[in-house]
Structure formats: structure tokens, C-alpha cells
Nucleic acid binder design. Structure first.
Lengths: 160, 160
DNA sequence: GACTATCTACTCGGATATCAATTGTCCGAGTACCCGTGG
DNA sequence: CCACGGGTACTCGGACAATTGATATCCGAGTAGATAGTC
């Protein structure tokens, strides 16, 4: 169970878009250059963010990407879901219904699968934790520990 | 981010081994037949359980698998880790260190990556939840809702 | 009748193919800006 | 000088390969029990 590498890219990229602000659009190529990532592939991830209404895109010269919403309304869960898709990590395929013993299982299959329930409970805890943190929260933490980063990042994207 | 299908198999199989008890060993083929699963592939998953000291194996006639520990000491986290491996789902590759802007980043890289920290925090919540539930807990829940299942399962593995 | 050596059948365990999904790349469609031209 | 039309360069967006990991399978090594032979 490994998470797509693109999640890390999307997180940091969204953070960069947050520093730049919604007034300027940043091309995918420039966003990729900031971390020396493959531009085309990052573009693919950005498309997922657009479809999830986290970022918005504009074509042509002076075009690029910007955040579609306020950082306060974008949770880390939103970003993970946008990249990884909405499906759960643990997929209960109800194997308990299969097999020969099934003939005599009678009513016990009416109850939900306890294994599945426990796994979903854990996954829910994970989702709750991610949904409780917004992009703005991360911004605040960065500001506290590295106050110079926002302005420095803004300038790097402004030049050239 | 999808979890291996083998996790579901391992969960239910461990539960079956718990019902049978540590006195009898059950061959992989019979464990697979119970859910109509590919026997050889389930055997592979069982090997992982053995390496994690969750199950123990004995070769030859009357051989097979049995639980290596008491169900009270086997957490769902143990089983997931045995199958999926110990590595975290979110792997921080420190992309923030790469790229041209790095030259002027100076001291801000001394701080841990905030994105990584938030992701690990969420994953920790997930792990805690899974580690808090033992195989015995699941057994109790099954006993409460479907009291006939344990004896029925035991008998199915005893016959033939 | 009891003990021992051999033989057989059954089991796991790791090495080996096959398949799907993630990762990575490319080219076409569309748009905004720039420039030249005409009023 | 201003408005307009065409051209150009830049951007995203989806269609197209390649590589990694998960899925599935097979055969050999080893063991326990049964069996036959011997004391």
C-alpha cells in the first residue's frame, strides 16, 4: 500500500500556489522547475486538481494554474482524494460469501463483515485527521518556523 | 493507494485459524478452499504471516498452519504490516531540497517538512486504530452477532 | 509380538511467468497577446 | 492617432509508451507417518 508520489508533489505545489496568490497564474513548467520535477507529469497531476475544483487553469500566454478556492477551504484530504481517487484503500470483496461452507451459513451473512468494519473504522480515523488540516493551517506553521519562505517563494515565481 | 487484496484474505484466514485453535494444523489448500481462493497464492500470504511470527507452519502429513500466538496478542496492525510490509504509505522524498531555488533556501531546510509531518500524523492515527483491535476482539464481536459461526467453522475444518 | 529401516504421500517454500497500474512522454487544440495595416 | 485583422508563441488537455509492483503458478526440498521386514 503505497501512496502515489504525485501526492507529495501536489501538496507542495498547492502550497506554492498559495504563496503566489490568486492574482497570478503560474505555468506547470515553472511549478515543475521549482522542484526539478518532470513538467509533463506534474501537469497531469495538476489536471486532477482542476477536476477536483482545487485549482483552476487558463490557457495561452500569461496562462497557467492558480488556486480555485481560499486556502482555508482546502483540506489535505481534498488534495489526497484529488490525486489518489475517491476509492477506499481497503476494498472488501466479501470473500466470506464465497466457498462451499456458504451453503450452511444461513443468516450469519446478514450481518456486516466485521473485518471490513474494523478496517473502515481505521481508515476513517485517517481521513478525519487529514480533513481537519487545511492548506492555510500548513501555511501558518511554515510562517512560524520559516518566516522568510513565503516572500522568497513569491519572488522566485515573479522573476523571469 | 490501494491495499493488497491479500490483507482481506489474511484477516479472514487468521480468524479461521483462531476458531480452529492451536492444536490442529490446517493446510493452505484447505484454508483456500474455505473461500474458494487460489491455494498457491494464499500460501504465499501465509508465508508472510509466518515470517511475522503470527502463524507457524509444519511440513509433511498432518502439517499445515496454526496461529503462533494467542489471539489476544495479535493486532490487526500486525496482520496488515505482515502482508503490506513495514514501509509507510506516504514516503516523503524531500522534493523541497531539489530545484534551483534551493541555493537561497539557507536555514529553512533545517526544519522538518511540514507536509510530511501532517501526513505522518494522519497515518499514525490509522495505525493506532488498527493496533487497538486484536484478533480476539473481532472474535468477540462475531460471537455476539453470530454465535453459531465458530462451532460451524471448526467442524468444517475438522471433517474430511 | 515388538522394533527398526525404508518408502510413500503430503506439506511448505522459494523461484518463476503473467498481468495491471503507476510513471513518464508526446503532440494537437485553443487562447491571448503582439504587430502590421488601414481608416 | 486609433481601430481592426492576422499571425505567432505560449498554454493546457488528453492520447500514447514504458517500467515497476502486484497477482498467480509451478516444482523441488523436507518431513511425518505408514509399511514391510527382521530379531
Amino acid at each position: 500500500m503505497r501512496m502515489s508520489e504525485g501526492v507529495e508533489w501536489a501538496m507542495h505545489t498547492c502550497l506554492n500556489l498559495a504563496w503566489v496568490g490568486p492574482d497570478r497564474a503560474v505555468p506547470a513548467a515553472r511549478l515543475a522547475a521549482f522542484y526539478d520535477l518532470p513538467p509533463a507529469y506534474l501537469g497531469k497531476q495538476l489536471q486532477s486538481l482542476v477536476q477536483a475544483d482545487i485549482a483552476s487553469s487558463s490557457p495561452g500566454p500569461r496562462g497557467g494554474f492558480r488556486l480555485a478556492r481560499e486556502p482555508e477551504t482546502i483540506t489535505l484530504m481534498d488534495i489526497v482524494t484529488a490525486i489518489e481517487g475517491p476509492e477506499k484503500a481497503f476494498r472488501c470483496s466479501e470473500i466470506r460469501r464465497r466457498g462451499p461452507q456458504n451453503e450452511v451459513s444461513a443468516g450469519s451473512l446478514d450481518h456486516p463483515c466485521h473485518v471490513s468494519w474494523a478496517m473502515r473504522e481505521a481508515e476513517l480515523a485517517w481521513r478525519r485527521q487529514l480533513a481537519s488540516k487545511t492548506l492555510a493551517d500548513v501555511q501558518k506553521t511554515v510562517l512560524r518556523t520559516s518566516p522568510a519562505v513565503p516572500e522568497r517563494t513569491r519572488r522566485w515565481f515573479a522573476e523571469q
